[in-house]
Nucleic acid binder design. Structure first.
Length: 643
DNA sequence: ATGTGGGTTGGCTTT
DNA sequence: AAAAGCCAACCCACA
């Protein structure tokens, strides 16, 4: 037997942009490598296929820069090597060129990541490269949670806690390495394979030329972290900054405040608080792995234990700080089992079917949503756009949506408020539309958590008390009587009396003028003469709340889930009578709630983006919804006419 | 089996 | 001023 060659290791950073508490990195170092290449591959899935706004891009680049600096501090010859090619095409060439013996990375149970990693592992096997995968992204391995939950997705906290108990203790954090091996030669003599940019879902995030794949090692040939300009991205507007250094400082500051750490109760933190906000703001660091969730867990738990030992009362999961991590694990466990289906209603056995407005288009070949949607109703489309753009006429909702777009982060209860408003407690728009907006704008967007929370708030999974609706007036007033939050993010209302801050349309015209802002229109115009303009509310909330509750009640009674045969083939329409909200018109239709494509039986084809032409009633049912909508429209019109 | 109590985070009225 | 009760009623675990 020839002497075994010393390991030449590629450490592939993905969801773990840190040096502290990385089980995978520790495993790489245990190999005692002769060379270690810390690399990042530029995945076209992220560049072109996922929705990523400039703020999250910026946070990612921050994390990469900080990590690269930290690596160089441990070994001046090393850094984070960014290689601009898809991992699936890069690795076969890279393994050969750099004579790699081992590939090490952290486990990722996201639906796409599983496909990608399976492919990469096969590539490595073919190349004779040994692969080491370690779990470090969640408290528990999501697959283990599923296994200990009788093979089922984790859909409640009690399931997570029961499964976790069986799995055993949560691993203690591993110290950061104190040294790193040299990288080897970094010559790249092979040709770069550029991925096709189509479809490029992120074109709208750029105002310059996208140059991710200009060359393998970047414009200066030094594998450096790109700039926003280089990627052609629009300027980031958030002040939240990424990187492990900042994350660890933030964590230290939090646990230094022992009573805050030990008595934290999420439902009691104010969603209206800003500078400083009421929660930790560590979620984006969890997402990019610039902070380990286990590091967070144990640093907090140690404070809690000491607090209890001193005889003081500490909070408990699920409302405590560590409880927040258990929710995260719950959503990862659900996603781990359900895969792509978790992110959509269609084909999802856990997700209730509700005939929402603006449903997703389904690719019947794959059963997956395409990213486009059916504009079944022009009013709902306008509700959706006004919600997204922060001009609903409800200051609480608009302030949150503007904060979200500007800063990429809003408080958890703020997310509840806008999500409830868009779906079951206001607009009756599909939760998948809202999830897409959050995916685009949140700097802490975590697919599993985002999807799970949207299902929760839309009462399609995890939660079902749909009659508990968040009021855009009463709810914020509970936290912020003065309306400071609204004044900060909706500055046109800054001078309004607190009596009207959440319902400015009720202020007398003379007062509106005295306060420098008149309430009229739909929010497209921001000024009129000498006055600023803030829109009228886009509907009567109490009326719309009732419409939604009745719609949900009816859909619950019908009792379909995303994998029901009737949902898959479109015959669900037969089960929804006049009382239903949503695009239920007619008894026949294509799968899910999608639009007809190839049916030749006289159905009209409907464009996905253009406002729909209201269909004339052909079937015996399906008109009540339009009637409800009509009633609502008339109601708003009448109100407009009066003032 | 049918009932009961709990479910991270509702709103409104009464006590 | 805080807390309890009602609203109209969901699912689920457990007895």
């Amino acid at each position: 037997m020839p002497p075994k060659a010393k390991p030449r290791v590629v450490y592939w950073f993905r969801t773990d942009l840190r040096l502290h508490d990385s089980p995978a990195l520790a495993a790489a170092l245990e190999l005692k490598p002769s060379v270690l290449y810390p690399i990042w591959t530029w995945d076209p899935h992220y560049v072109y296929r996922a929705r990523v706004g400039p703020n999250r891009w910026k946070f990612l680049l921050d994390c990469q820069s900080d990590l690269s600096t930290s690596i160089t501090e441990l070994n001046p010859k090393s850094k984070l090597f960014l290689i601009r090619e898809a991992p699936q095409t890069l690795f076969p060439k890279l393994f050969k060129e750099w004579k790699i013996t081992h590939l090490v990375f952290e486990k990722d149970t996201d639906a796409y990541a599983r496909d990608r990693d399976a492919e990469v592992m096969q590539i490595a096997k073919d190349a004779g490269v040994q692969v080491i995968v370690k779990m470090g992204r969640t408290l528990y391995d999501p697959d283990a949670l599923v296994q200990h939950n009788h093979g089922k997705p984790t859909m409640s906290m009690s399931q997570v806690q029961a499964a976790g108990k069986q799995i055993g203790d949560i691993a203690r954090p591993i110290p950061a390495p104190t040294s790193l091996p040299d990288p080897g030669e970094t010559t790249l003599s092979f040709a770069q394979e550029k991925p096709g940019p189509e479809p490029d879902i992120n074109a709208i995030q750029r105002d310059g030329n996208e140059a991710s794949y200009s060359s393998l090692a970047g414009p200066n040939g030094d594998f450096a972290v790109p700039t926003m300009e280089e990627l052609g991205l629009k300027e980031a507007t958030t002040l939240h900054r990424g990187g492990e250094t900042i994350a660890l400082d933030m964590l230290s500051a939090i646990i230094k405040n022992e009573s805050y750490t030990a008595t934290f109760e999420k439902p009691k933190t104010a969603p209206t608080a800003f500078s400083p906000q009421a929660t930790t703001l560590l979620s984006p660091h969890m997402h990019f792995g610039s902070l380990s969730c286990r590091e967070f867990y144990w640093r907090v738990q140690d404070v809690v234990d000491a607090y209890k030992k001193a005889g003081k009362h500490a909070s408990e999961p699920p409302t405590s700080l560590t409880g927040q991590l258990l929710f995260r694990d719950m959503y990862f466990g659900a996603q781990a089992k359900l895969g792509y289906a978790f992110g959509q209603t269609y084909g999802n056995p856990q997700c209730r079917f509700i005939p929402w407005h603006l449903p997703s288009e389904i690719d019947t070949a794959t059963g997956l949503i395409t990213g486009r949607y059916l504009t079944d109703n022009a009013t709902a489309e306008s509700y959706f756009l006004r919600w997204k753009e922060g001009r609903t006429g409800f200051p609480w909702i608009d302030a949150l949506m503007r904060q979200l777009r500007l800063e990429g982060w809003i408080h958890h209860l703020g997310r509840h408020a806008v999500a409830s408003f868009l779906t079951r407690g206001g607009c009756y728009v599909d939760w998948e539309r809202g999830a897409e907006v959050f995916e685009e704008w949140l700097i802490d967007h975590e697919a599993a958590c985002n999807i799970g929370n949207w299902q929760w708030l839309s009462c399609t999974a995890f939660f079902s008390q749909f009659y508990r609706v968040y009021s855009p007036v009463a709810f914020p007033a509970k936290w912020d009587k003065e309306g400071a939050f609204v004044r900060r993010y909706v500055p046109e209302l800054a001078r309004f009396d607190k009596k009207y801050i959440y319902e400015p349309w009720k202020a007398p015209i003379a007062d509106q003028k005295a306060w420098g802002c008149v309430i009229r229109g739909d929010g497209v115009k921001s000024e009129e003469g000498e006055y600023r303009v803030y829109p009228k509310p886009m509907f009567d909330f109490a009326t719309q709340r009732e419409v939604c509750i009745q719609g949900l009640k009816n859909a619950y009674k019908v009792g379909l889930h995303g994998n029901d045969a009737k949902v898959l083939d479109g015959t669900w329409r037969k089960l929804f009578d006049d009382e239903a909200e949503g695009p239920t018109e007619g008894n026949d239709g294509p799968p899910g709630a999608m639009v007809e494509h190839e049916d030749a039986d006289g159905h009209e084809e409907v464009e996905h983006v253009a406002p729909p032409t209201p269909k004339k009633g052909k079937g015996k049912t399906g008109h009540k919804r339009e009637k409800i909508q009509g009633t609502l429209d008339r109601l708003v019109t009448r109100k407009k006419a009066k003032t």
